[in-house]
Nucleic acid binder design. Sequence first.
DNA 1: AATGAACCAATCATCCTACAAATTTGAGGT
DNA 2: ACCTCAAATTTGTAGGATGATTGGTTCATT
Lengths: 225, 225
Amino acid sequence: MTISKTNRLSLVEQVVSQIESLIESGEWKIGNQIPPEMDLIQQFDVSRNTLREAVRSLVYAGLLVTKQGKGTFVRSSSALGAAFERRIQQSSLLETLEVRHALEREGAQLAALRRNQEDIEQLRFHITACSKAAEAKDIKAYEEADIKLHKSIMGSSHNDLLIDLYEHMEHSLHESIHQIVEMSSDVNFHLNIHCKLVDAIIEQDVNRAIETVNEYIAQFKKSIE
Amino acid sequence: MTISKTNRLSLVEQVVSQIESLIESGEWKIGNQIPPEMDLIQQFDVSRNTLREAVRSLVYAGLLVTKQGKGTFVRSSSALGAAFERRIQQSSLLETLEVRHALEREGAQLAALRRNQEDIEQLRFHITACSKAAEAKDIKAYEEADIKLHKSIMGSSHNDLLIDLYEHMEHSLHESIHQIVEMSSDVNFHLNIHCKLVDAIIEQDVNRAIETVNEYIAQFKKSIE
DNA sequence: AATGAACCAATCATCCTACAAATTTGAGGT
DNA sequence: ACCTCAAATTTGTAGGATGATTGGTTCATT
């Protein structure tokens, strides 16, 4: 016995797979509207039910989003995001922060090792934006710039899986950054630590980069106790 | 403005949500068969299409699995698993290893801080199992014991989100552990490092725990270069 | 010309019936 | 006891009909 068990893919699974390919290959670009159901029914040569089950699966996974009366649009090219965000919502702030610590520490370490000239320019640009926003006391702008800086650091790690995971903690990031900026009346302290981190990454000082991440995560932790 | 945008949930989304609750609450246990479509149609008072779209979404997410002619069964209680595994499959071994590093470093740190008496017993049990398997030169048993040890360490962190993420790297874990055990003819070195890590966690020596993780991950990295 | 009401077209959402395919069950014959 | 095959159960696929939402068009009123 023990012949291949799940050898046959259902029609729905085949359609799902094809749509995934279309999205990943960039043929269906993020933000764009995909053809209406009727067209896809003909394109894939399946019934409406089959197509809808496939599309609905990808909507749940976060790759597509449907808007009644308007159409269906490509939302993301990775199914990891929606699941991760859903899971994060069920977690405490502390748990999420610790996972952030895990990802940011690794990200900072790798960034210090691998950052190239382009990364350095990006980092300098975003840290300058943070600085300006802090000077102008524009809290909202500071938060925005801070998030972009964090993403830019993560991007300098050149590890797509890590980047992907971090990307989808953005909502949680917003929350915690907002909280910390509100609580600590001293934005400059926050800014200083980030400067230190960017310096360490640019100078490829791995240990200092890691220690700096540890430092500001510890600060966060204290503030939510 | 900022009036509620997506205030209305579609029927399918409502059914999905209800099924998720049934699974998470344990009312539908993992491995068990769920009621047939016809029963669910009556239970949720929706059409077959609507119900099927909901079920199909959860199948894609990895929570359910359907078998034509037999029924639908609960596969997992977390949607993160399937998405994460799918994403990992597209990643290189190096990328995955670095994410493992991120999670294991954080896990070890938190374990050293939070391990309780029960954790200590678990850790001792699994490290002993590793030891015995190494003595008996039973590679397969060693790999099994090693994975259980790693999970046990992660469990000692008492961070459910971290545990959940790590849980679903198991397949990747298998691969890399197999590879490292095969390559390094010296299993004792591998075992020793793990003993050191467990010791550090039991003694609540945070820095040594982190350094030990760094040490064996660096070893892994060398081996796949 | 500006406004707004009524209408229309496109698109997704839901429901319905029917049949196909896979699996299990059980009746009936040997 | 064993085999055969039909029936029942369950998921898979097809196709049609109607409702709901959105966006745009037309057109009369001001």
